[in-house]
Design a protein around this nucleic acid. Structure first.
Length: 475
RNA sequence: GGGGCGUUGGUCCAGCGGUUAAGACAGCGGGCUUUCAAUCCGCCAACAGGAGUUCAACUCUCCUACGCCCCGCCA
């Protein structure tokens, strides 16, 4: 079994494409087949090396690897379409010789004009095959005019039935289609031609791709047949949509894997979430390791309807994976985000902080904001907290008195702190929340956070006392 | 304009002729906590509409509506 993922490097790895790559990858692994990466960079104007690099990086980040591909190599390369132009020309030549394709001299402008007219008349916009039977002289004449021809494929008139692995039998009537272009006038192949030539040469057995290609599949099948090649199996997976049900685009926010990566999504979480989009098990299991997914995945269980990408659920799942991470690992992962905000600290200290804050982290990008008060000399005070908690009349005295109490405390562990402060509160005949709340605001600047005593322990005696002193001035 | 594919709560997804239509996210309420979070408990909420077929239809057929895709010298 040989499968492939064939992105165009015209942008970073899109979520929808990532999902296509994932499904291909899962099935290839499940059947111990080969997974091939092919770069479809025939659109010279829009393709960029930078995007190719980015896509490869993001796939690796996601934990998807391949057996054959650019750089990596393989027996059926090259794996970049821009390096296979000669092959496409040879195949086109073959079709031309067999009278299965022909030169078409119609200009873009003429084509556009005719389609417009057809549409205005309420007819279907499609090529009228007028260059099919051009005489030699007409061809020469056109060339003399300076026209650069394209090569079109001569469509045989018939019904084509696809047995799609996800949606079953689908049929098309080719009489409703016009002869389509296989080679552009600049000598490069069109997508529809290049995929077929490559899939033949790369011995692809199963094509899993987006539903947007379902309508192109009859064209591909005609080409496979014209080239006397074995037709692979097809599986067209439903689209990934934005929150409003329209095609996922920039206006919906982040659409590329790279953006989610920057936000601090974990690859394991992203991988897991993506697998659940358009696929599910009987048991409605939600959490899967990569190995489990490889074992469980099947095309029969793929949904036919489109799915909306839900950032909320992804975020929830990411939090779940974050909570499962070892503190050391989490510190390591958070470092770039801290650095970006100019924050840092001793590894040991950071680890203790992360242990306290871990269950509050949903995305790595939130870490700096979440733990900032542990790392800076001068903490920021939440104005509302100051107003509502610190400004209360009795607070100043409580803090001053408590500070004295803590100055004499040698064991600054959470347990000891809790015992001491609770006793102190009791002796002063105060309610715990009237002490705990101001204390929290005084040492963290906020009203929310991890356990108070754990926080104090991690901060350490010196910082706590200093902050209490600082807070008195805010009362 | 033609063709293709699809439609279960706000979202993901289970169900494959007979179920109180399950689970998850989100939302709401509650327990636990000094607070938030985590966690636990509970609640809200769906078969797009209409005709058939059938003793019985979310499940099968047809029509309609809506959405997405293709009809590009984009992929």
């Amino acid at each position: 079994m040989r499968l492939r993922f064939a992105p165009s490097p015209t942008g970073y790895l899109h979520i929808g494409n990532a999902r296509t790559a994932l499904f291909n990858y899962l099935l290839a692994k499940k059947h111990r087949g080969k997974f091939i990466l092919r770069i479809e960079d025939t659109d010279i104007a829009r393709s960029e090396k930078e995007f190719e690099k980015g896509i490869i990086e993001d796939l690796r980040w996601l934990g998807i690897d391949w057996d054959e591909g650019p750089e990596k190599g393989g027996d059926f390369g090259p794996y970049r379409q821009s390096e296979r132009l000669k092959t496409y020309r040879e195949f086109a030549e073959r079709l031309l010789k067999q009278d299965k394709a022909y030169y078409c001299y119609c200009s873009k402008g003429e084509l556009e004009q005719r389609n417009k007219e057809l549409l205005a008349r309420g007819e279907s916009p499609r090529y009228d095959n007028r260059c099919r039977n051009l005489t030699k002289n007409q061809g020469i004449e056109y060339k003399l005019e300076g026209r650069r021809p394209v090569i079109r494929f001569k469509i045989p008139e018939r019904m084509i039935e696809i047995n799609d692995l996800i949606r079953g039998k689908v049929s098309f009537d080719t009489r409703l289609m016009g002869d389509f272009i296989i080679m552009k006038s600049d000598g490069t192949p069109t997508f529809n031609f290049a995929v077929v030539v490559d899939d033949i040469l790369m011995r692809i057995t199963t094509v899993i791709r987006g539903e947007d290609h379902l309508s192109n599949t009859p064209r591909h099948i005609m080409l496979f047949e014209a080239l006397k090649a074995k037709i692979p199996e097809f599986a067209h997976m439903a689209m990934t949509l934005g929150p409003d049900g329209s095609r996922l685009s920039k206006r919906h926010g982040a659409t590329s894997v790279r953006e989610y990566r920057r936000l601090g999504m974990l690859p394991e979480a992203f991988f897991n979430y993506l697998a659940l989009l358009g696929w599910g098990t009987k048991e409605s299991q939600e959490l899967f390791t990569k190995e489990e997914l490889i074992k469980e995945f099947s095309l029969e269980r793929c949904k036919e309807g489109a799915a909306i990408f839900d950032i909320e659920k992804l975020t929830w799942m990411n939090g779940l994976y974050i909570r499962k991470k070892e503190p050391e690992e989490l510190v390591r992962l958070s470092l770039p985000y801290l650095k970006e905000k100019g924050l840092g600290g001793e590894e040991d200290y950071l680890r203790k902080i992360i242990v306290l804050e871990r269950e509050r982290i949903k995305k790595l990008s939130e870490v700096p904001e979440l733990i900032e008060y542990f790392l800076v000399e001068k903490i920021k005070f939440d104005p509302e907290a100051v107003e509502k908690v610190l400004k209360r009349p009795e607070v100043k005295e409580i803090l001053t008195s408590l500070k004295q109490e803590l100055e004499n405390l040698s064991d600054f562990s959470a347990g000891s702190l809790e015992k001491t402060i609770r006793n102190w509160t009791k002796n002063k005949d105060l309610k715990t929340k009237d002490v705990f709340h101001p204390l929290r605001v005084a040492i963290t600047g906020r009203t929310v956070g991890p356990g108070l005593f754990e926080t104090m322990e991690v901060l350490g005696k010196e910082r706590v006392l200093k902050r209490l002193k600082g807070a008195e001035r805010k009362c």
